[in-house]
Simulated scan of single mutants.
Amino acid sequence: MHWDGLFEDLEGQLASEWEAERAALDAESERLRISRIEIRARLRALAAAEAAIALELPAGRLLAGRVVEIGADWLAMAPNPGRGATLVPLTAVRGIRMDHGMLLASLDPTVPASELRERMTFGFVLRDLARRRVPVTIEDLDGCRRHGTIDRAGADHFDLAAHDAGSSRRAQDVLAYVVIAFAAVARIDLEPR
């Protein structure tokens, strides 16, 4: 009888050690999986869930809304219904605020990427805005806001014809022409159509 108790105790210890080792391996496997997740994949999961989030931008500014599109190096947010959209270069994102449930859900990025959309760069989108003559408000990293129309976009900069909000881009209404580096942009607000 004494031996039966000893063997049961040893079996229990062995099972406990195996369980602890399996838990450690599972934890390490999960850490490795998470280490490979890119922020774009998490944003894709948040967009698919239509999650309400707030982007932390430079100088402590927040942009609340829902992610509606994700590109190669940018994202589009819908801040409030009827307010248009906002383009944000990923380099301007300092953080993403959300509730804990969405934080955990964004770690499971099973939403497939849109091959074409996610190859579109920030410059590609700005060239399209220039082609369509969409009035925009540019906010730079320092919080300076300029309203105008993008005339053309290069590889790492764009030309803005600054004019008053609500007015069209007519030569007589242009207040200044400004060359703006992509790296200086915190956000671009598009007027609703």
Results as ranks from 00 to 15, higher is better:
Ile70Glu: 04
Glu50Cys: 07
Ile70Thr: 07
Ala54Asn: 04
Ile53Tyr: 07
Asn80Tyr: 10
Ala72Asn: 10
Val67His: 06
Leu87Val: 11
Gly71Ala: 09
Gly95Lys: 13
Gly71Phe: 08
Gly60Val: 02
Ala76Lys: 15
Ala45Thr: 10
Ala51Glu: 05
Asn80Arg: 15
Ala92Lys: 02
Ala78Cys: 00
Arg83Ala: 12
Ala48Cys: 10
Met77Pro: 10
Ile96Tyr: 05
Ala72Tyr: 14
Arg66Gly: 00
Leu43Lys: 09
Glu56Tyr: 03
Arg40Gly: 05
Val68Asp: 03
Val93Ser: 04
Glu56Ala: 14
Gly60Tyr: 02
Glu56His: 15
Asp73Pro: 02
Leu57Lys: 01
Asp99Pro: 00
Thr91Met: 06
Leu63Gly: 08
Asn80Ala: 12
Met77Val: 14
Glu56Leu: 11
Glu50Pro: 06
Ala76Tyr: 01
Glu56Arg: 12
Arg97Cys: 15
Ala64Ile: 13
Ala85Leu: 13
Ala85Trp: 13
Ala47Asp: 11
Leu43Thr: 06
Ala85Glu: 14
Arg42Phe: 03
Arg94Tyr: 00
Ala48Gln: 13
Gly65Trp: 03
Met77Phe: 04
Arg44Asn: 09
Arg61Asn: 02
Ala54Arg: 11
Arg97Pro: 13
Ala48Thr: 12
Ala59Gln: 14
Arg42Glu: 07
Leu62Pro: 03
His100Ala: 15
Arg44Lys: 04
Arg97Ile: 13
His100Tyr: 15
Gly71Met: 11
Ala47His: 14
Ala85Gly: 11
His100Asn: 12
Ala49Leu: 15
Val88Ile: 05
Ala85Thr: 15
Pro81Ile: 08
Gly84Val: 00
His100Asp: 14
Ala59Val: 05
Gly84Asn: 03
Arg97His: 14
Arg61Asp: 04
Ala78Lys: 05
Asn80Gln: 15
Leu63Met: 08
Leu63Tyr: 08
Gly60Lys: 03
Leu57Met: 02
Ala72Arg: 14
Ala85Cys: 04
Val88Asp: 01
Arg83His: 11
Ala76Ile: 06
Ala64Lys: 14
Ala45Tyr: 07
Val93Asn: 05
Leu46Phe: 09
Leu63Val: 07
Ala52Pro: 00
Ala78Leu: 01
Glu56Trp: 05
Asn80Gly: 07
Thr91Pro: 07
Leu46Met: 13
Leu62Ala: 06
Arg83Gln: 12
